[in-house]
Each structure stands twice: as structure tokens, then as C-alpha cells.
Design a protein around this nucleic acid. Structure first.
Length: 952
RNA sequence: GGGUCUUUAGCUCAGUUGGUUAGAGUGCUUGCAUGACAUGCAAGAUGUCACUGGUUCGAGUCCAGUAAGACCCA
């Protein structure tokens, strides 16, 4: 083995071997339990960020852990087509490179272009996953637009339509005027912005006046440009100011439209003037008010959100109507919406109908992709009726069929499910699953799996011209079928039977609504068990937090603080990192700032750390549901841990390779105290570690394995093997070698799920020495706790030994005695057990505490002036002659005394409190008593010692 | 406005049903070429557990409120 751990040289070839050998595939053993995880679909043309690395670490750890327990294990891999995002990328690309639009290409050619792009850039993610060590079954890799998924989506759509769970309707949708598509509520981000509230005078018709005698009403609005589409004014039915006006009319300025004054709860008496203009075609609240009062709807905006040349007038059912004139004043025609606002305000001012302009904080809806303000728009769209699906889906969580980790996310889930809105699933895009609906020339709609089926089903002759809906489905619609479509649905396949429901879903809280909830709804609707009971898509949902940057800021491209997991693994130079962050930016004006921040945060670029260190760090920081502030220092620390494992293994191999490791059970093996102790420690580590993994506490698991490996196995056990290996007899050496190789071999298996590469690499050499056969650690058995191997006496004996050694080292450290100077120590007040332990562990003591002699004083025998340490009642004395500074020793003793006195005071106080003694459990009181006795004794001894030293 | 979460060592974070002197990594101080490792070894220092009040024999932990921050919903 090389002297220093170098991940580069081991990782890539190992992965290739694993993949080639088919170790990632399910073992197909139907007699063992199945275990499956369906990957949260990354965008096929995207790349993995630290959040993915985090989730993948957790999934791979779980999968490897279960696989090593012999389960029939599947980690299903795949990517999604990311409709809007991908189409935008390719549109920008052809615009930049060829100055063309998608319409220049035409639908089919443009879609071909996207497939091309997918072929080109689709490999990034899979390469990254291979570097991360993800043990996914690549042969089953799926894509949301592959044949199987297309079939599943089509089938799902048709069945839901037939069951009246999908409908088409003219309704207000969130329209993105930049991307020209409807989006769902979830794709809208509400942002607080400073704006204005305009108070407009609306003249009353027919000579009516208000209670105050005015001939107009004042309405307040943040969107004056929608005046052109007003079809009513609402006042609160309880409002005394306007009661007499209800049923009367307004003469709407600019367009001269006569519109009614209606009474509706929506008008808030406390807010503004209490009068609200109603524009049903351009506002979600107004739409509802309009429905209640049968107000017509007038659309005044184009799909670009410009003012139309002529308005579209609909009745309240959305049918074209001529209730009102469609004329729009010429000066506003074609104006962009914000310019139109200015023009209309100016016109009101001109007409002396602008009463007031007040500053106003409003919340504006933005499209999460296009980044422009969303326009409520009256269009025909397809919807999923969500409420009936939500009922079953909510119950599954209530009944505990699906559990969220951590639990509090269940509330978030419930709160959304209880108030669920219908889901707009059509998108005016070309890239995606085209909606399986056909229209005849009369505008009738037919839904079916293909045109032939539609014709057959509805008896449409071939002369009837049908055209398919131009729109595609929301990407999340296909993602919602992921857990079962990947397993062959709509066929009833063996895979579906074996691997569905999946065991755990590992994902971020930010897509609970987008994906998790919808997956539960869709799955429970389509998949039933043998008894017809709806099947859940997964039993547990493990929610990860966000990985943030070192300042706690969200990582994002525009902030330029994104980290590529591969750069943690391979390292990257500063210049290259800067280039990576500022190159190809959508907002080049930020480049300077990003460059400066990057140079500050990564002065020397990023060192290579290897996959195992990255994974271990992510695991160590995975406490439930919390965000992670990424800390390079932690990564450094855990890279050092890998180096530690490497070197500890090197030590083991140096002392066991080509030597008798006691595999032949006929030859005698003598186990030292250290051997028996480390075995017990190790067993307890297995137990605690498995508990941690079973409860998704990866941070605790990492902590346990770190503590055992470094602080027990390396710091104590390996040191304790030295005296045996260098000076012990044959059977003692054999026993220790046997312990060394067997513990290390098993420890590697224990660590493997989190750190796959380093463990596999070392295991290949260590396993044969421990008598283990097998081509790969990946398929070796996961260690199991064996209580018989825990030797309680050995455990307490060794703790005593450690205390002894630490006490000597402490005196050396504080007294400035070289660690190389052999010492002669005296023992006073030793119990029989102390004597036994001393007797049995001379070799360890002299090696680890560097002792020349240990002499027991008879009772009554006087000791020379010494530095002392206490082990229970036993005193360890280091004679001072020539070694120790009197004042330094006094200072050291006084410090100890102070500590002991402090303890004593606290404990005495507690025990003197009658209520404590009366109420506390016996065990607690006994503990306190013991502590008091110990403190009393220690205090006496230290004071005695101080007196002795002072008298010198 | 409603809701959820966070606040513990210089930094990044653990801390179970309330019960020793609140821990880890990193950083800091001192010493050390020691037969695996200087990406190391040994020893050591470091806390108003955000704040105020309450419950309790006992609170980092439970309750109420305050402050700061993050997120979700409207």
C-alpha cells in the first residue's frame, strides 16, 4: 500500500468493475425481501449539484446497507425531460447560433433538435453519478419520454378522463406572457414589491348619488390597465355607505360601458374605499365574484400581455357573447401592459377622475422559469380534479402507511392537501407528452389512446377531420407516475409486484407539493394490491434540507456560489473555478462580484478530497431535515479520516501479511486484554451504528464509526498491539493478528455503505487474511451484533488501564517531562483488583506510558516526594527527584483540588435538599452519593499531597 | 396576516423519555521525528445553551412570552 491515501488512483476503476460485474443489479432472489428506492428524477440535460450529492449519498448508503443484508435490492435510476426548462435552453440555443425561432423549425423539426441536445448533454448527470459511487442498476435506466413512460402517461390520462378526474375548461390560469404557457399555482412565486394604489372615480349612471351626495364612486386598484375589462363594481352588502346604490349602474370611463354595482362579501369595508372594481377576465378574485353575479368577462390582453385591438367578450359561462361592445379606444391598442397602465392613469388624470395615488406594498406573482409577472388569463386548459385524489392520499399519511422523516413535514403535507386546488396540467409547449385529445371541426373533444381508437369509439368516419391537441402535459404529470411506470405499468409485471411500493423516497422538502403529494395521489389511484386496496408509492419519505454555502446562503447560479460535487472530489484550481462560475452567465453584470467572492472564499482553489470523504461529510451533516451550511473544514477533516483508515490498514497489513493470522483453529490463539476489549467495543459499535442507520440518523452513524475507528481502534488498540506483536510469544501474536485482521475486515464492511471505495480497495487485501472469500465487499454480509463477544471484565479492565496511562501522560505533559524519558512509578493504596490488573498489564503499561518499573508500596511504607495521580482509591506516584518542579506540581494539584471542591459543593447541596432526596429516583440519588464519596476522598488525598509537597 | 423551523465553543454542528462536570469536527495553546499515519501523536484551554418569566427537588431539554433569522402559505 502507498503511504498516503490517494483516492484518485482507486475510485474510478473500482466503479467500472462493479458496474461491469453487475453488482448493482437486484439479486433476483424471490425468497428474500425486496428493497427499492426510486430516484428523484434529475433534469436530463442538467447537472448534479451538492443537494443531489447529499441525497444520493443517503440513498446509496441505504441501498448498499440493505443489499449487504441479502435483500433483493433495486435503486431505480432515470431522468425527466423537464419540459419548460429544456425547451427554453434549446430555444435560446437556436436563437443564438442560427437566429431562428422554434416556429422557423416547425414542431417536428424542433423536437428533433431537442432530442439531439438531449443526446449531447444528457451524459453529464450519469457521469457524475458514477463518480459519486451510486449503485444504481444502469440497465434499467429510464427517461420520462421513453416508450414505456409515454404509454403510461397516455393510459393514465385516458383513464382519468374517463373517470371524470380530468376535464377541459375555459378558466383563468396563471399565464406566463414571456414563455407563452399556462403554469400551475406551484410554479408561481409571490414576491413583495413596492407599488402604488390608484384611487379612481367611477361616475354613477342615471343621476344616482352616494349618501354624501357625490355623483361617483371611488374604486382603488393596483392595476388601472384592467379598467378596460371591468364588468362590475362590488360593495359589501353590509356597508351602509353604499346600500342604496346596490343594483344601480356605473358609467365606466374610457369605454363608456354601463356596468352594475353588485353586493358581494369580497368587498372589504375596512379596506380602501370599500368599493372594488370587478374584472373577471383578469383577476382570480374578480373571476369568482363575476361567477356569483353572472357578470360577463371581457378579455383585453393578448397572450403577450399587450392591450388587444378588440376585446373578447364572454358570458359568465365562457361562451362568446355580444352583451358588450368589443371596442377598445384606439390610443391604448397594442400597448404593452405597463405602458398601458401609465396611459390609462394619465387619461384618468386628464378627465379629473384620478382622486389619489398612494404608495402600496403588493405581492406580485412571478413565473419561476420566465421570471416575469404572471398574467391571469382566460384560456382553455386541461385540469386534474384534485380533491377526490387528495382524500385517499391524505388518509395514507394519517394512517401511517406513509411516514415522513422528520415528522413535522406531515403537517405541511396536510395543510396543502386540505386546501388543494385543481391542477392545470396543460402547457403550451412542444417538448413533452402531447395531450391525447382530438378535436373535430365543430370543436368537439375526443380523448383516446390514439386517433384510431377515438374514431372507433365514437364512430367517426374517416372523412371527419380530427386534429390532436397541440399542447403537452406538465412534466410533473409524468413524474407523478414514476414509481410504477418504471416498473412496467400499465402491464402487471413481476417488477411491479416485486419492487412496488418502494421503501423510501429521499427528496427535498421543496418538492413536497410538486412531486411527493402528486405521486401519492396518482399512485394510489392507479395501483391497487390484490385486495383492491390502493397501494402507496413508498413507505417512508426522508426529507433532506438544503445544502447552503459557507455563509448560509442558498446556492444558485445567479449568486455564483454553486459547488460542483466533482470539484470536491477531484479538486479544482482557482482560475478554473472562477471561470466556471462567471462563464456563460445569464446576468453578466454580476460576474465581478462573483469573481471577488470566489477568490476570497477559495484562495487556493479546492483540493482533491475523494468521493469517500465527500460522502462521509454529507452523511455526518445529515441531521434530520435541517439545512446544511457547507463547511470546507469539515470536508478536510473527513478526508484526514480516510487517510487514517488507510494508514491503520497499512499497519494491520504490515503486521499480518505473510504471517500466521490464526486462521487454522488447531493452533492456539491467546487473546490479550486489548484483543478482548476491542472486540467488545466493536460489537457495541455495530449495534449502535445499525440503530442509527435504521432510524435514518446518518449523522449519528458517521459519528459512531469515526469515534470507534479513530479514538478506540487507532489511538488505543493499535498501540496496544505493539507490545504483543513485538514481544509476545507465538500464540499471543497469533491471537492479536487474528483480532487485527478480523476486526478490520469487519469494520470495512460496516463502513462500506457510506464510504464504498476506500473500503472495497482495502478489503480486497484484508479479506483473504481474515479467511473471507468473495469478489467484492459490496455483496459481503453486513456485520451483525454478537453479544457473546462482549467481555464485561475486559471492558472495565481496559478502561482502568487507559486511565492509568492517561494519568501518567497528563503528569508528563503538565510537568514538562519528555515522553521519551522512562519513569519509575510507585503504587499506593492498591486494592486486590488493582493489583491483579497491574500484574496482568505490565507490558501494556510500560509500552504506552513508557514506564521502566512499577513498584507497589506496602502499607505503612513511606513514599518519597512525588507527583501523584488518583485512580479511585489507588495512588500513582512519580518520584520528584530531579524531575519535577515543586511549584508546578503545587499549581497542578491546586487546580485539581479546585475542581474537586466545586463538584463536592454542588453534590452536597443537592443531597442536603430534602425535596431532592424525597423525589429523585433512587438510582439518581445513589449516583450522587457515590460522587460525593469520591470527591471527598479525592479532596483528602490531594490536600494531603499538597501538604507533603509544601513541606519539602 | 397564518404556519413551520432555527438560535449551544471562534467556525460548522450533535445533545433521546428532564437527572454526573453540556459534547464532536475544525480552529487555538504547549510539547513531540515515536517501528501505520505531520492528512500525524500526546497533553491542555475554551460556553450567560438568544433573552425574560414559569412548571419542577432538578431545565440546553417542558410551558408562555420577547428578539433575531430562514422558509412555506395568503
Amino acid at each position: 500500500m502507498e503511504k498516503t491515501y490517494d483516492p484518485k488512483t482507486i475510485e474510478q476503476s473500482l466503479y467500472q468493475t462493479w458496474e461491469e460485474q453487475g453488482y448493482f443489479k437486484p439479486n433476483g432472489d424471490q425468497s428474500s425481501d425486496a428493497y427499492s428506492i426510486m430516484i428523484p428524477l434529475p433534469n436530463v440535460t442538467g447537472s448534479l449539484h451538492m443537494g443531489h450529492a447529499f441525497q444520493h449519498t443517503i440513498m446509496d448508503t441505504l441501498i448498499r446497507y440493505q443489499r449487504m443484508q441479502g435483500k433483493n435490492t433495486l435503486w431505480q435510476v432515470g431522468t425527466d425531460h423537464a419540459g419548460i426548462a429544456t425547451q427554453m435552453v434549446v430555444e435560446r440555443k437556436i436563437a443564438a447560433e442560427e437566429n431562428k425561432t422554434k416556429d422557423d423549425y416547425g414542431r417536428d423539426a424542433f423536437i428533433d433538435k431537442i432530442w439531439e441536445w438531449k443526446e449531447q448533454s444528457g451524459g453529464t448527470i450519469t457521469k457524475q453519478m458514477r463518480r459519486l459511487g451510486d449503485s444504481v442498476d444502469w440497465e434499467r435506466e429510464r427517461f420520462t419520454m421513453d416508450d414505456g413512460n409515454c404509454k403510461a402517461v397516455q393510459e393514465a390520462f385516458v383513464r382519468m378522463f374517463e373517470d371524470d378526474l380530468i376535464y377541459r375548461g375555459k378558466r383563468l390560469v396563471n399565464w406566463d406572457p414571456k414563455l407563452h404557457t399556462a403554469i400551475s399555482d406551484l410554479e408561481v412565486e409571490n414576491k413583495d414589491k413596492k407599488g402604488f394604489m390608484w384611487h379612481l372615480r367611477y361616475p354613477l349612471a342615471d343621476g344616482a348619488t352616494t349618501a354624501e351626495g357625490k355623483n361617483y364612486l371611488v374604486v382603488a386598484t393596483t392595476r388601472p390597465e384592467t379598467v378596460l375589462g371591468d364588468t362590475g363594481v362590488a360593495v359589501n352588502p353590509e356597508d351602509p355607505r353604499y346600500q342604496s346604490l346596490i343594483g344601480k349602474f356605473i358609467e365606466l370611463p374610457l369605454v363608456g360601458r354601463r356596468i352594475p354595482i353588485v353586493a358581494d362579501e369580497h368587498a372589504d369595508m375596512e379596506k380602501g374605499t370599500g368599493c372594488v372594481k370587478i374584472t373577471p377576465a383578469h383577476d382570480f378574485n374578480d373571476y369568482e365574484v363575476g361567477k356569483r353575479h353572472q357578470l360577463p368577462m371581457i378579455n383585453v390582453l393578448t397572450l403577450d400581455a399587450n392591450i388587444r385591438a378588440t376585446a373578447e367578450v364572454f358570458n359568465t359561462n365562457g361562451e362568446p357573447s355580444d352583451d358588450y361592445s368589443n371596442v377598445i379606444p384606439e390610443q391604448f391598442q397594442g400597448l404593452e401592459r405597463f405602458k398601458a397602465r401609465k396611459a390609462i392613469v394619465a387619461e384618468f388624470e386628464q378627465l379629473e377622475l384620478l382622486q389619489e395615488v398612494a404608495e402600496h406594498n403588493n405581492t406580485l406573482p412571478y413565473g419561476d422559469r420566465g421570471g416575469v409577472v404572471i398574467e391571469p388569463m382566460l384560456t382553455d386548459q386541461w385540469y386534474v380534479r384534485a380533491a377526490p385524489l387528495a382524500e385517499t392520499a391524505t388518509k395514507a399519511v394519517e394512517d401511517g402507511e406513509i411516514q415522513f422523516v422528520p415528522k413535522q413535514y406531515e403537517n405541511l403535507y396536510y395543510s396543502w392537501m386540505r386546501d388543494i386546488q385543481d391542477w392545470c396540467i396543460s402547457r403550451q409547449l412542444w417538448w413533452g407528452h402531447r395531450i391525447p385529445a382530438w378535436y373535430d371541426e365543430a370543436g368537439n373533444v375526443y380523448v383516446g389512446r390514439d386517433e384510431d381508437e377515438v374514431r372507433a369509439k365514437h364512430g367517426l368516419a374517416s372523412v371527419v377531420v380530427l386534429r390532436q391537441d397541440n399542447d403537452v402535459l406538465d412534466t410533473w404529470f409524468s413524474s407523478g407516475l414514476w414509481t410504477f411506470a418504471t416498473q412496467g405499468w400499465p402491464e402487471q409485471t413481476d417488477n411491479l409486484k416485486t419492487f412496488h411500493p418502494s421503501d423510501v423516497l429521499v427528496t427535498g422538502f421543496d418538492i413536497i407539493f410538486f412531486w411527493v403529494a402528486r405521486m401519492i395521489m396518482m399512485t394510489m389511484y392507479f395501483i391497487k394490491d390484490e385486495n383492491g386496496k390502493p397501494q402507496v408509492p413508498f413507505k417512508t419519505v426522508y426529507m433532506t434540507g438544503l445544502v447552503r454555502d459557507e455563509n448560509g446562503d442558498k446556492m444558485s447560479k445567479s449568486k455564483g456560489n454553486v459547488l460542483d460535487p466533482l470539484d470536491m472530489i477531484d479538486g479544482i484550481g482557482l482560475e478554473e473555478l472562477v471561470e466556471k462560475r462567471v462563464g456563460n452567465m445569464m446576468q453578466p453584470q454580476l460576474a465581478k462580484k462573483i469573481e471577488k467572492n470566489t477568490r476570497k472564499a477559495f484562495e487556493d482553489g479546492i483540493e482533491a478530497h475523494g468521493t469517500d470523504a465527500l460522502r462521509f461529510t454529507l452523511a455526518a451533516m445529515a441531521s434530520t431535515g435541517r439545512d446544511i451550511n457547507w463547511d470546507m473544514k469539515r470536508l478536510d477533516g473527513y478526508r484526514n479520516f480516510c487517510n487514517k483508515i488507510w494508514n491503520a490498514s497499512r499497519y494491520v497489513l504490515m503486521n499480518t501479511e505473510d504471517q500466521d493470522c490464526g486462521l487454522d483453529s488447531k493452533l492456539e490463539r491467546e487473546y490479550s486484554l486489548a484483543d478482548r476489549w476491542i472486540q467488545g467495543q466493536y460489537q457495541e459499535t455495530i449495534k449502535a451504528y445499525r440503530d442509527a442507520l435504521d432510524t435514518y440518523r446518518f449523522d449519528i452513524a458517521a459519528q459512531i464509526i469515526y469515534e470507534f475507528t479513530w479514538n478506540q481502534f487507532c489511538d488505543w488498540y493499535l498501540e496496544l498491539t505493539k507490545p504483543v506483536l513485538f514481544k509476545g510469544n507465538e500464540s499471543q501474536q497469533r491471537g492479536t493478528r487474528h483480532t487485527l485482521v478480523t476486526i478490520l475486515e469487519s469494520l470495512l464492511r460496516l463502513m462500506h455503505p457510506i464510504m464504498p471505495y476506500i473500503t472495497e480497495s482495502i478489503w480486497a487485501t484484508v479479506a483473504p487474511l481474515a479467511g473471507k472469500a468473495g469478489d467484492t465487499i459490496m455483496l459481503a454480509a453486513f456485520p451483525e451484533f454478537d453479544g457473546d463477544k462482549v467481555d464485561a471484565t475486559a471492558m472495565s479492565d481496559l478502561e482502568w488501564l487507559k486511565q492509568f496511562i492517561v494519568a501518567i501522560r497528563n503528569i508528563r505533559g503538565e510537568m514538562d517531562i519528555s515522553p521519551n524519558k522512562p519513569l519509575n512509578v510507585l503504587i499506593k493504596n492498591a486494592s486486590n483488583e488493582d493489583l491483579r490488573r497491574l500484574e496482568q498489564n505490565q507490558a501494556f503499561l510500560s509500552a504506552l506510558a513508557k514506564l521502566e518499573t512499577v513498584t507497589t508500596l506496602e502499607s505503612g511504607e513511606t513514599a518519597p516526594a512525588s507527583a501523584t495521580a488518583l485512580l479511585g482509591e489507588m495512588e500513582v506516584l512519580i518520584p520528584m527527584a530531579g524531575l519535577i518542579d515543586k511549584d508546578a506540581e503545587l499549581a497542578r494539584l491546586n487546580k485539581q483540588l479546585e475542581k474537586v471542591s466545586g463538584d463536592l459543593k454542588r453534590v452536597e447541596g443537592k443531597l442536603a435538599n430534602e425535596k431532592f432526596v424525597a423525589n429523585a429516583p433512587d438510582a439518581v440519588i445513589a449516583k450522587e452519593r457515590a460522587k460525593m464519596d469520591e470527591a471527598l476522598l479525592a479532596g483528602d488525598k490531594i490536600r494531603e499531597q499538597i501538604a507533603t509537597i509544601e513541606s519539602l
